[in-house]
Simulated scan of single mutants.
Amino acid sequence: MSVKLEGNILVTGANRGIGLELVKQLAEKTAGEAHIYACCREPEGTSAETQSLIRGSRTSQELEKKKSTLNKVNIQDKGKIFNGQDVADEDSVSAAVQAVSKKIAAGGLNLLINNAAVNKPASPAPLSATSKKDMMEVYETNVAGPFVLAKMLLPLLQRAAERDSPAKDNGNKMSCRRSAIINVSTMFSSIEKCPENFPIAQMYPYRTSKAALNMLTRCQAEDFKIHNILVAGIHPGWVRTEMGGADAPLPSQDSALSVLSVISSLSNKDSGRLLDWGGNMIPW
């Protein structure tokens, strides 16, 4: 199964879990020419799998054969794409944006996937265990981080959007192959569904930050539509990762492939929406 995405793609939080799997699936399954920029905060402490992608393993050699390139900066080069890109640190984000801009040049950025997120304190994170510090740190990463990154990358997104919309998009002015921001959200962000799932995990900082991210998605969708930049949120499911836990029913590989399949099909009508990994709308 190929993923109908191409061009310059940037993924945050790519050191583990869903972010790492998104990068792997993009590297292996993109149908056209794709240049993937994988960003994470602490590359020196990442998994062997991530290190392999950074340094250029069999996976990246396979990419050369299909003209789909995993753009990487070796850790020893002290570059800013993999090395120390922290979405909660504005200077770090600025450095990463500058590094990516130099590599992208005139092509523009076709797709930004804001995946990086934190959950504090550890689940189930009841009110009694949650501090003001937890609230502020989670908000800074989960909301302010995507806000700053999208703001700084907007000129590159506009540059990509200004190029002619591909004929295969059937007249749609917006698509993730042209210019788009995907904010990774969660079912737990839904105010309407909170009574159904609150007993599972209270997670005050995580829930409220992702609800704020949903509003950011809506605001950006309204603000950027004049530029034909699609903005949408997606819930990847309850995924078996370090954050999701061992009891989660969905493997990261299945989640990532489903997410990429959904965003491959997004068009004008989907901008400003929150969808799940099956393409179903989630109420605010």
Rank of each mutant, 00 (worst) to 15 (best):
A88C: 06
E90A: 04
E90C: 04
D91P: 05
D91Q: 14
D91V: 12
V93L: 14
V93Y: 11
S94T: 14
S94H: 12
S94L: 13
A95H: 11
A96C: 15
Q98H: 08
Q98M: 10
A99M: 14
A99T: 07
A99N: 09
V100R: 00
V100I: 10
S101C: 05
K103N: 11
I104N: 05
A105R: 04
A105W: 00
A106R: 09
G107Y: 00
G107V: 00
G107F: 00
G107N: 08
G108D: 01
G108Y: 00
G108N: 01
L109P: 01
L109Q: 05
L109N: 02
L111P: 00
L112N: 00
I113S: 02
N114E: 12
N115A: 08
N115Q: 15
A117C: 07
A117Q: 15
V118W: 03
V118Q: 09
V118E: 15
K120T: 07
P121C: 13
P121S: 13
S123P: 02
A125L: 11
A125C: 08
A125Y: 03
A125F: 06
P126I: 05
L127W: 05
S128P: 01
S128H: 02
T130P: 03
T130D: 08
S131E: 14
S131C: 06
S131V: 05
S131M: 10
S131G: 09
K132H: 07
K132P: 04
K132A: 09
K132N: 09
K133C: 09
D134S: 07
D134N: 15
D134H: 11
M135Y: 06
M136K: 12
M136S: 11
E137D: 15
E137W: 14
E137V: 07
V138G: 12
V138M: 15
Y139E: 14
E140F: 05
E140L: 13
E140P: 04
E140D: 15
T141R: 03
T141K: 03
V143P: 01
G145M: 03
P146K: 12
P146I: 13
P146D: 13
V148H: 04
L149C: 10
A150H: 03
A150T: 09
K151G: 02
K151E: 13
K151A: 07
M152C: 04
M152G: 05
L153C: 01
L153D: 00
L153G: 01
L154P: 01
L154G: 00
L157V: 00
Q158H: 06
Q158S: 08
R159S: 02
R159L: 10
R159H: 03
A160M: 02
A161R: 08
A161T: 09
A161Y: 07
A161E: 13
E162I: 06
E162D: 09
D164E: 13
D164V: 04
